[in-house]
């Protein structure tokens, strides 16, 4: 298997995993929670390192999962104690992220984990960090981790498809009729944390945000169907990864950064030229940008 193949596969898996999961967050108006969790998993990873003294996959996933859920819990707590939700998100993630960065600067010399890496990832090194069992190499660890998380996410979404849809559309009605809304909420938070940490090595904590939010938002502009939206979001994630990779190789720049910019390119295209929601079509139809009263409440 060639070097380029593994990098592209990793990028596409990041796009697919984050795209599908993130689309749910966009619909639930929790995009900024995705932003927060992608920052704070850094603390989980550093924490896992302090406990195990190594940077292996499973402890990292567990640490990130715990901190991801803690982030959601803290935000919820602050919000219910009267702090505006966006400010609550702001406080929690900047604090935990800052803590993570400071801790890294203490251990940074001992391992291959520095701030630069945490922010941007280093997808170029992915092919060399292979999963080796009994001397046989089974391909890059990142690919295995991403594949596992993708599988888990897909299984969860399939199992709880109805519940996710109902609690997203009308949480109060869902609660009343007996959907375990809180469990679904934290299930999603776990999925986001896992997706984030599995992607972390390749694209870095911050640029995961782009993959989580932008493909979902783009798909939201292109379709009116829940199922299609999830699929489309994953596809846009993959396309962004591929386009970004091509650009990065052409100009010899950060692969993760290019992928983030590529998601933006797709978004702008959908925003302007989307068949139903695009600005151009709205201008032609003569409808203004102003929303109707009921949808802005």
């Amino acid at each position: 298997m060639s070097y380029t193949f593994w990098i592209l596969l990793t990028g596409c898996l990041v796009g697919l995993t984050c795209g599908i999961t993130g689309a749910l967050l966009v619909l639930r108006k929790m995009a900024m929670i995705a932003d927060a969790i992608s920052h704070t998993v850094l603390l989980g990873i550093v924490g896992a390192f302090f406990v195990t003294q190594s940077l292996s996959g499973i402890p990292m996933l567990i640490g990130a999962g715990i901190v991801g859920i803690l982030t959601a819990v803290f935000v919820e707590m602050l919000h219910s104690s009267g702090v505006q939700s966006d400010a609550a998100i702001g406080i929690v993630f900047t604090s935990l992220f800052a803590l993570g960065v400071v801790l890294i600067s203490f251990i940074g010399d001992q391992v291959h984990l520095d701030v630069q890496h945490a922010l941007m990832g280093e997808i170029a090194f992915v092919p060399w960090n292979t999963l080796t069992i009994n001397g046989v190499s089974y391909g890059p660890t990142a690919v295995w981790m991403l594949g596992a998380v993708l599988a888990v996410n897909l299984i969860l979404i399939t199992l709880f498809y109805k519940e996710i849809k109902m609690s997203t559309f009308d949480p109060q009605f869902a609660t009343l009729i007996g959907v375990p809304v809180m469990i679904i909420h934290y299930l999603l938070m776990t999925m986001v944390s896992l997706s984030t940490v599995a992607s972390f090595d390749s694209v870095g904590a911050i640029l995961v945000v782009a993959m989580l939010i932008v493909p979902g938002a783009t798909a939201y502009l292109l379709t009116d169907r829940f199922f299609v939206l999830l699929i489309l979001s994953g596809v846009i994630g993959i396309l962004s990864a591929a386009l970004g990779y091509g650009f990065a190789i052409q100009w010899n720049v950060s692969i993760a950064g290019s992928m983030a910019v590529a998601t933006g390119v797709f978004f702008i295209a959908a925003f302007l030229f989307g068949p139903k929601q695009g600005v151009v079509i709205k201008k032609i139809r003569g409808t203004t940008g102003k929303k109707t009263v009921q949808s802005s409440t």
């Binding site: 911050i206 939010i213 910019v261």
Partner: peptide, 8 residues
């Protein structure tokens, strides 16, 4: 995220 990506 897109602006920051561009920055990187």
């Amino acid at each position: 995220s897109v602006f920051f990506g561009l920055g990187i």
